[in-house]
Design a binder for these strands. Structure first.
Lengths: 123, 123
DNA sequence: CCGCATCCTGATCGATACTG
DNA sequence: CAGTATCGATCAGGATGCGG
């Protein structure tokens, strides 16, 4: 496991950017989106997030757990059951995420059009 | 590219992730942050965004321009002057970005603490 | 001053195999 | 079921040098 996020300097000018690192990895948003609706099992997350590999799902969940945004709950059953849910801290992120989500719904078409125009003009 | 299927469903998680792709590259947020306060020259951006290389700054600006979020204005002087500013579309992103920014200011300390606790517990 | 082209390293991710 | 371990391939990104 390669957890080298050591340079967590709060005073750094990259403070703003580091904030986004909390949520900007490829699968983080999707995991977060699934957990918004409540506690979910590992296998359910795997099933519902299309295209995610075991490795990436685990890695993403570990990172969210490490950041205190997600809670991991292991039930000592056979076979094992693991449930994930948002922590109170994680829930404070829901609103900002929704804000971005709303922006997408409203403006993503414009972005696609802009790209099309840009690419066309470049030819 | 397996997960790159297109869905017209505005509520689809796939759509949700795409939102972040617009803003989640390493330097995008910092560039955006600088341009919030108005039109800036390339060299000023380079100076104010600590640690960014020419390559990455140019690359980031091109991407933002392609997405229709940033306007590029070339003045035919010698030597050349290039100014960047937010487009109207780009300005619509300011509020969502501020929302994330506020979250950072309020909760980033908690994230750092959570990381510390998590890492400590792992030893 | 602004930016493109090239080379190169090392982080990231998928695929695969294995465990409690 | 819910992971861990390992190995390549791919890719982002830094360094450098050139060009309008």
């Amino acid at each position: 496991m390669n957890n080298d996020f050591q340079s967590d300097d709060k005073e750094s000018p990259c403070h703003y950017r580091r904030a986004l690192e909390v949520v900007s990895s490829k699968w983080t948003v999707l995991v977060f989106y699934e957990l918004e609706s409540g506690k979910k099992r590992y296998s359910d997350l795997k099933k519902q997030i299309e295209g995610v590999t075991q490795k990436m799902l685990t890695q993403t969940l570990r990172q969210l757990e490490r950041d205190g945004l997600v809670n991991r709950q292991v039930h000592p059953t056979v076979p094992p059951t693991v449930e994930y849910s948002l922590t109170p801290l994680g829930e404070t992120l829901i609103e900002p995420m929704r804000s971005l989500h709303r922006w997408t719904d409203t403006h993503y078409d414009s972005v696609l059009e802009a790209r099309k125009a840009f690419d066309h003009q470049k030819l």
